[in-house]
Amino acid sequence: MTKVTMTVNGKAVSGEVEGRTLLVQFLREGLGLTGTHVGCDTSQCGACVVHVDGKAVKSCTVFALDVEGASVRTIEGMANADGSLGTLQQAFQDHHGLQCGFCTPGMVMTSAALLAENPKPTEAEVRDYLEGNICRCTGYHNIVKAVLAASGQDVSAVAAE
């Protein structure tokens, strides 16, 4: 076991991990932050997306020891300081951007990375950026709508079907 130290949602954390411990395992099992989900475990579905130093990554395909010293943000770090939902989270609720909710943590984290890079994306840009996030309820239209709404754009014209 090796000691790993990083900042998660603004708090300094550390733990003992094996070489093979994945970042998502450290977050979920080591820190009890179970908001980040493991869907496919093969870096295809995007349910496990978190930010490492501001960049969206699939935490099932990163070793915990490889992000020693990094700043990590998970879905638990997306709410406002008073515990109310953040803008993007609220938009997902308002526009019914989640059905079963399993993919939602990854969808929110990937969308947050998109809006940080591109504050006013087009619908096509949102769909393109979410290419690595799979929703098996197939609720993509409302997810895209939620992201556009969170960016402050009018979504009344976005196709419903």
């Binding site: 870096s43 990554v57 950026y129 690595g132």
Partner: peptide, 9 residues
């Protein structure tokens, strides 16, 4: 290549 999260690593 791949998707944005894959391209970041």
């Amino acid at each position: 290549i791949g998707d944005p999260a894959v391209r970041n690593l």
